[in-house]
Design a protein around this nucleic acid. Sequence first.
DNA 1: GCCAACGTTGGC
DNA 2: GCCAACGTTGGC
Length: 147
Amino acid sequence: MKSEPGEFGIDDLERRPGQTEPWDGVRNYQARNMMRDQMQPGDRVFFYHSNCEQPGIVGLAEIARAAYPDPTAFDPEHKHYDPKSRPEQPAWLMVDVRFVRKLKRTLTLAELKERPELDGLALLRRGNRLSILPVSPEQWDFILALE
DNA sequence: GCCAACGTTGGC
DNA sequence: GCCAACGTTGGC
């Protein structure tokens, strides 16, 4: 899961009450479907810092709550308001994410790109801009071993 | 700041 | 349904 550290970084997650944060604001159908269909409580995710000096994987988090309606979509005052989403029929969902730990070092995007073992990694696909991306078990183990 | 790569919107 | 215009993402 990507986040801009200037907006909400791994340190912010660590400081949250319960070290848990609702992952609101996702407004992409592919990303929504991944939250809805692929994320269960206890599942682990990489926390990725994007749009910053050193883009890369900085920590581990886990899903604390399965997908449920994103209330920010209902609020006309909110930046992420979307009139297509109504409480009776929510278009947008979010999960709760809980801090697990920071990595001992940042696994930079540049470093991940150098690894032929990660050729198929969705994060490295050309033009990818999704804020939530799949990682296979093999990719997961390989990346963690780089730490 | 630049720009490639997308997703979305809306006219037709 | 097509597609140009536009907005956003995010690395560099």
